[in-house]
Design a protein around this nucleic acid. Structure first.
Lengths: 257, 257
DNA sequence: TAGTGGTCTAGACCACTAA
DNA sequence: TAGTGGTCTAGACCACTAC
């Protein structure tokens, strides 16, 4: 029983074959920023319905190879941007606060049951939530909701302008000497609010990173970040050791064997 | 200028509204493993074309909330499995080799240009490639291609059975005392070979993790792992500090604010 | 105004599963 | 065999962009 069956007798779907053909064309005949022929022409050229062609384009867009702009056309996408993910890049430790993050708003409200459970506090406990947007190369790449139980920041100054309170929360958090973080990454889709901040339509694929921050062995904050999956590649440079040579796009390496 | 415009005058697409309605239903009226009404009935019930309903189901499947099985029906998916990602879990260091990985095959061939560049070796240099599959909870969750330049393993025994050579490559690599790794994660789709190993159709979304392993400040191996995005949540437990309380599914926390 | 991608329809047939 | 999701078609209209 061969594992795969390379010469499968089952014909592959048209849209998958189309994707392969288009991918080869993208890699050999086009360069970043170029515009593909429009969908109606492409579907005619390949002798398929427009919906079938779009299925192939959907795949390539999910892979970050194409960008489609309404009213404009379908463009060859630039390679994904490697976005460093660590406390330094997130403007956390005593270091100078990163310029990459822009504060959107800051709310203080009782924790919903789910949030309370995630933070390990009682239901209804007051929680500060700071929303930020991360810009990379002039583009909104990620949004983040940072949740901090009020009990963790006992010395937070009183009422201020929202942006001041947000900055205060971040500053106080740094003083706790966060000494550990635990992250998880999964696939999600952008909800309305996130989609607007990321300048993408609702339903766009995102990489959802959940980070637990600990200080003195105690969970002090949770950040939920959503990164644009079309243009982002999350990089976890734990120690910054390996800098020998940049790694090619993973899909290229994958097909290289 | 309100950031979002909650009461947008622009009507949201039917499929997006449908997704929201179905998501609420999934969370309140159904439990894991239950079967939804079939697509033809659902589309009739909501008064839309089947294609439109399927667009909504596509979204929910991408979010890992639904699993669709041909000939069976559409099922409520189990919550995503948190898959630990670190050298211990990958069976790397001197510790007992993980039982989670099963060796598929092992090839020794000259490096393609892309692979050579990624590994920092000259084009055509001999490279060992070990393919493995990671099982979690009785399911194939990931495939991995581990590339090691032959020059890194000078004392590799001669010809053997393929599986023996694979094990030998892994063992020799461990002896190098790998002291650093650098990872990146991005969204991809399963190609034919990966799809077969993951028991998913081609084009299924995957999380592609590229890991550079360093020993003595030198890049000694690159691993390209593809994890099923529908059922996996990658967890990076750097130090295993935070164990206060499990974090709820990120989408739940996200909507909790 | 012309051209683009985005949405939606109403059907058809196929591949797979289970009884 | 009946029922399911997967694929594909040929069209329609809409929202957006640029000229």
């Amino acid at each position: 029983m061969g594992t795969t069956g390379q010469l499968a007798t089952v014909p592959e779907p048209k849209y998958w074959h189309l994707r392969t053909v288009l991918l080869r064309a993208i890699e050999t005949e086009f360069t970043t920023g170029q515009i593909l022929p429009n969908e109606r022409e492409l579907s005619a050229r390949f002798g398929v319905a427009r919906a079938t062609l779009r299925q192939a384009l959907d795949q390539l867009e999910l892979e970050g190879r194409l960008v489609r702009r309404r009213g404009i056309g379908t463009l060859i996408a630039a390679p994904r941007v490697g976005v460093p993910v660590n406390r330094h890049e997130e403007g956390w430790p005593g270091t100078a606060r990163s310029q990459a993050w822009r504060i959107v708003d800051c709310t203080t409200a009782p924790a919903t049951p789910r949030l309370a459970k995630a933070l390990g506090v009682v239901e209804g406990a007051t929680v500060h939530t700071v929303r930020r947007v991360r810009m990379v190369q002039g583009q909104n790449m990620a949004t983040e909701s940072l949740h901090v139980p009020a009990a963790v920041l006992p010395h937070l100054p009183g009422f201020r302008a929202e942006s001041d309170r947000a900055r205060s929360v971040l500053r106080q958090l740094e003083r706790l000497e966060v000494d550990g973080e635990s992250r998880s990454v999964e696939l999600g889709v952008a909800e309305a609010g996130e989609a607007a901040l990321l300048e993408r339509p609702p339903g766009s694929p995102v990489l959802v990173m959940t980070t637990q921050y600990a200080a003195a062995g105690r969970l002090v904050a949770i950040a939920v970040s959503t990164y644009r999956a079309d243009t982002c590649k999350l990089t976890f440079g734990e120690t910054g050791l390996v800098e020998v040579t940049p790694v090619a796009a993973s899909s290229e390496v994958r097909s290289a064997s």
